[in-house]
Design a protein around this nucleic acid. Sequence first.
DNA 1: AGAACATGCATCATCGATGTTGCAAGTCAT
DNA 2: ATGACTTGCAACATCGATGATGCATGTTCT
Lengths: 195, 195
Amino acid sequence: MVPPASPKPLRADTERTVRAILEAAERVLSANPAATMEQIAEAAGVARTTVHRRFASREALIAALAAWATQRFHEAVEAARPQTAPPAVALYQVTANVLRVKIGWGFAMGALPTDAPEVARVHADVLARCAQLFVRLRDAGVLPPGTDLDWARRVYYALIHEAAIQAPEDDAALDALATRVVDTLLHGIGTPTAG
Amino acid sequence: MVPPASPKPLRADTERTVRAILEAAERVLSANPAATMEQIAEAAGVARTTVHRRFASREALIAALAAWATQRFHEAVEAARPQTAPPAVALYQVTANVLRVKIGWGFAMGALPTDAPEVARVHADVLARCAQLFVRLRDAGVLPPGTDLDWARRVYYALIHEAAIQAPEDDAALDALATRVVDTLLHGIGTPTAG
DNA sequence: AGAACATGCATCATCGATGTTGCAAGTCAT
DNA sequence: ATGACTTGCAACATCGATGATGCATGTTCT
């Protein structure tokens, strides 16, 4: 229902409710992944039955949440033009864009074990883009030729994950965070002259 | 029951069972944090009622698991003599020791929201040791004077967490992993000349 | 060997979460 | 304004997980 243009345009009423539920689910579940539908409904300001009317099951709700976040994730990466922009620039842009999304949708992006066909495809797509970006980084000399790209990618994800916990809301702080992530990724935190 | 010498020495029988349950819980819960007591019991090769006899509640089981892992964690850090060994050496030793523990007890170490008084104290102790180690690293010039120690510590944890997923079993691979973690922490993954 | 204890099994009780339905009242679109 | 849709509420049904118990059958320790 959420990802592309739905077959039937939702009533303004319904759309607000759905969004409220998804946002509430994100907040509540990120605080406690085992939270009940009741707690989510309460946080959304609706009755529990309404949640069940919109999402057939708890599983469906989480799937919708993941789909929503995946879409945002995809947009964030694509907006950085990771295949055409200079790799170092793209790295920074991707970092900043993804951070912005991840700060608000941390749970949904973490709970990605989705089995929906469409969503899985988009997600795989994004991962491939990231992998390609790292190849480009290596080819451009930003990363040494012998770099273990898998380790590099995982370190990158871990740094973004850590940075997202800071959760700043203004753009200046977000840029500072992105800078710190890229910097740490490339140069670590040690004294350059040491070693 | 587990951490120090128990008031009543368990029967050989019981001890084996308890250990089997804890180890099974680690395996099963790390694969699926929402696993049921039944699944844990099955993995341990005992009846579900036996688990309940040893651990009053699911909560108690997880608490015991956390306590056990915390103890191991503590030993791993202390064995590296983080306050007396040269900081760079201690960093490496702590990394290797903690990796060894974390590979086998990843869930238990992640599920640390424990409210047991004794356990919390030990855990806080370990964290303090780590913080001190980072101060020593900075004072020794391994880290630049202006380093944000909180960020440094969090990056370090994240790297260990990532590395522990590789899960090698032999010592050579473990040392290689530890080297990689320390190296990445200090120098990142970028080309040194770049910038 | 014998007392003390642990385990497996079957059984039962309970509890919370999930999911459904009917109806009255409210909201939206045209 | 009117018909279509949505929501809240209350009630109900179900289901799985948790936790407890009694008893027969091992297992351990001395």
